[in-house]
């Protein structure tokens, strides 16, 4: 996994997205901290002009710089793109033939990809974090840093990104090409919360019963760790556990890869029925949820009817497209 050639190849393959990720990290932390300091100063001056107001930096303001806001969303998308360029794109082009013909084990090939992505995320995060931290620390607002914990601003996001990258790579080890890797990363990244929302809408329409969202559902949702930093110890321990689990599973799957299925939706054909069933039920339930929402909220019977109309229509769609998806084959030999 420390073969120089593989690092070189991975870098050549992902150069663009690596620079995008670095830029996003710089905007996210150091640049945003400079801007925030200016904003806070301005707000304080305004507050001083008005009689009886005192401005204080809020916890939310600090979290915005380190772990929340829109930039982590873009960062998570870029991390998916990185994972897709490392695995999915190889499958769409013939580059996979080259890598698999090399005198390296598949385990080494995979771990080189993982380690490469992890190192990039780790170094970019650490460097930018400490730059931003120092900028605030030496300013007049250094006390603001006491409002947040290290888990919330440092460990949570770092381990969240690392876990999420590992997750996106894992998806790449059993999907046959780039588009399905992107699609399934989003789908499975939200799966527990998504399934919960679908069940909730079902029981709500039929029985007027609403479950409350249990915490463990959130903890099982990969995207949760990227967008939401609660500062609990779980947001350190669970990403570590998931990272380990995903890494083990993905290495195993990559070693077992049958790349003659490259270009198809899934590499492992045994997963096809599972995927087809899941996607059909999911789309149908979503159909019910969407159409029932169009009916007036108070008309019980109408909502149930609307639900099943939506359910049936979407079920038909799902059946039609499902087969096509699993039998497709996307491979291009031209310019990637």
């Amino acid at each position: 996994m420390f073969h120089k050639a593989l690092w070189y190849q991975n870098y050549k393959q992902t150069r663009m997205i690596i620079w995008i990720i670095l830029t996003l990290f710089i905007i996210h932390m150091p640049f945003q901290s400079v801007l925030s300091l200016e904003t806070w100063k301005e707000r304080e001056e305004q507050a001083n002009q008005a009689e009886g107001y005192v401005y204080e930096v809020q916890k939310w303001d600090v979290l915005q710089i380190f772990s929340q806001g829109t930039l982590p969303v873009f960062l998570s998308f870029s991390i998916i793109a990185l994972a897709c360029l490392l695995i999915g794109l190889e499958r769409n082009t013939r580059r996979n033939d080259f890598t698999f013909s090399l005198p390296f084990s598949r385990k080494d090939l995979f771990l080189a990809k993982w380690l490469y992505g992890i190192s990039a995320i780790f170094f970019f995060h650490v460097i930018n974090f400490f730059t931003a931290f120092f900028i605030i620390y030496q300013s007049d607002y250094s006390t603001a840093l006491y409002l947040v914990s290290w888990i919330e601003i440092f460990w949570g996001p770092l381990l969240g990104f690392i876990m999420f990258f590992t997750f996106a790579l894992l998806i790449g080890t059993f999907t046959g090409e780039m588009i399905s890797q992107v699609g399934l990363t989003f789908l499975l990244g939200f799966l527990p919360q998504g399934v919960f929302a679908l069940i909730q809408s079902f029981t709500e329409v039929h029985f007027r019963y609403i479950f409350s969202l249990p915490d463990w559902i959130n903890y099982l949702t990969p995207f949760h760790y990227v967008f939401n930093q609660s500062g609990e110890i779980q947001s350190v321990v669970l990403p570590l556990i998931f990272t380990g689990l995903f890494l083990w599973l993905s290495t195993y799957l990559y070693e077992k890869n049958k790349i003659e299925h490259n270009g198809e939706f899934l590499i492992f054909k045994v997963l096809n029925p599972v995927f087809l069933t899941g996607i059909t039920i999911g789309i149908s339930l979503a159909g019910g949820m969407i159409v029932s929402a169009l009916a007036p909220w108070s008309a019980d019977a109408l909502r149930v009817i609307a639900y099943w109309i939506g359910f049936t229509t979407f079920l038909l769609f799902a059946l039609l497209i499902g087969r096509r998806i699993v039998t497709m084959n996307i491979q291009f030999y031209g310019k990637p």
Binding site: T93, P103, S105, Y333
Partner: peptide, 15 residues
């Protein structure tokens, strides 16, 4: 796999 240093495959198109 190290033994594959002894083998090289040249595919019909080098894309």
């Amino acid at each position: 796999p190290q033994i594959k240093e002894q083998v090289i495959f040249v595919p019909d198109s080098s894309e």
